[in-house]
Amino acid sequence: MRTPLRVATAGTLALVTALAGGTAARATPPGPGVTAKLIAQKTVGGTDYTVREITVPPGQATGWHYHDGVVYGYVKQGTLTHYHSDCAVDGVYTQGTVVREPGGPSDIHLGRNLGDTPLVLEVLYVLPHGSPFSEDVPNPGCPFQ
């Protein structure tokens, strides 16, 4: 049975899709071969503290995203090229350096491995309890993923 609300919702979605050029904006997932391994996890009060090892193969990226809390990354191997949503590089982090991401939807970013060796990051997430590690978002209009 079709209700007027269901028909109106479907019509609105079709109109928005058509106005957007025929395709809905999609989140950008991590590139092929990007992996994450859980190292440690602890909840204290309302905060989850999690350590993960993230590996990004040469030529791949993390996908556009943000975090609901602060994230610290230590570059264990390789080089991280870090971009903000204005498409500009906001940092290049080599082995032995630390990157801090403040979190929140105003901190949309992407990490890329432009080198020829795997990028390995040790990442500490400090997130509100139950939050996902990251929130995927569509490419903000940059000529790369």
Rank of each mutant, 00 (worst) to 15 (best):
P4R: 12
T79W: 00
H65R: 14
V71M: 10
G111F: 00
R6A: 15
I108V: 15
V34Q: 06
L19W: 03
T9R: 12
T9Q: 08
T62L: 12
Y93A: 09
L121T: 07
E122D: 13
T117R: 10
P118E: 10
E135Y: 11
G45S: 13
R100Y: 04
A88G: 07
V89Y: 03
H129C: 03
T47D: 05
G33I: 08
Y72K: 03
T47W: 03
L124H: 06
M1P: 08
G46R: 13
Y49H: 14
G103Y: 01
D136K: 11
P102I: 04
Y125P: 00
T47F: 07
P105G: 12
N113T: 05
L121F: 05
T94H: 07
W64L: 05
A27I: 10
Q77N: 11
K42M: 10
T3L: 10
V120P: 04
A40N: 11
S85E: 13
G91A: 05
T3D: 10
T43S: 12
D136Q: 15
G91K: 01
A88R: 10
Q77P: 06
V99I: 14
Q145P: 03
P57V: 01
V99G: 06
H65P: 15
H67F: 12
I108N: 01
A20W: 02
W64I: 03
P140I: 13
T81S: 12
R100F: 02
M1N: 04
C87Q: 08
L121G: 00
I54Q: 02
V44Y: 05
P128S: 13
V44R: 06
E135H: 15
D68G: 02
H67K: 01
V51F: 09
F144K: 12
P105V: 14
H65S: 15
P4N: 07
L121V: 14
Y93T: 08
P102V: 05
A24T: 11
D136H: 11
D90P: 00
D107G: 07
L80K: 03
T12N: 04
L124A: 11
S134F: 13
G96Q: 12
T23C: 02
E101T: 08
L38C: 02
P143E: 12
L124D: 01
S134L: 12
T97A: 13
N139R: 07
N113M: 04
E122W: 04
S131C: 12
Y66D: 13
A10R: 09
V51Y: 03
G22W: 03
K37G: 05
G11F: 01
G33E: 02
V123I: 15
T28A: 09
P30W: 01
T9S: 11
L38T: 13
Y49E: 06
V123R: 00
Q95I: 09
A25C: 06
R100C: 09
Y74M: 08
A40H: 09
A10V: 06
C142I: 06
H109C: 03
L13V: 14
G111I: 03
H82S: 15
K42Q: 14
Q41T: 11
R112G: 02
T55L: 06
P57I: 00
T28K: 04
S134M: 11
G130Y: 08
G130H: 10
N113V: 01
R26V: 15
V92M: 04
A14R: 07
G91N: 02
V16M: 06
T23I: 05
V120T: 09
E101R: 09
F133N: 13
Q60K: 11
T50Y: 00
D136W: 09
